[in-house]
């Protein structure tokens, strides 16, 4: 991958990781605090934002998930490198 594209790729992937971690923490928190309305609002906002970030990422770099959880262009992009563990 070209240098500039690689940087963009890493940055967007890192942002996805960050928002996933915050969502994970909020989810675990909400398991024990189901009544916390502010946490629920934050959770929903971040979930919407995460979906949007995923669509942007996949439009640029290909599917993140398979088995129908992500779209793909022609030809089938799932088999293209880099694979997640190569990044």
């Amino acid at each position: 991958m070209a240098g500039k594209k690689q940087e963009m790729y890493d940055e967007q992937l890192l942002q996805l990781q960050e928002i996933d971690f915050v969502l994970l923490e909020l989810n675990l928190y909400l398991d024990t605090h189901p009544g916390d309305i502010q946490a629920i609002q934050q959770y929903n906002q971040l979930a919407m934002k995460r979906k949007q970030m995923q669509m942007e990422f996949e439009a640029a770099y290909g599917p993140l998930l398979h088995y129908g959880q992500s779209y793909t262009k022609y030809p089938f992009q799932w088999i293209e490198s880099p694979w997640p563990w190569q990044v």
């Binding site: 942002q15 960050e18 928002i19 971690f21 915050v22 923490e25 916390d36 502010q38 946490a39």
Partner: peptide, 19 residues
Amino acid sequence: QPMNLPQYQAREALQKGTL
């Protein structure tokens, strides 16, 4: 854990391992 504790920013939370 009490409610409405102050939170880290997303990047720092990922580095520190807690929100």
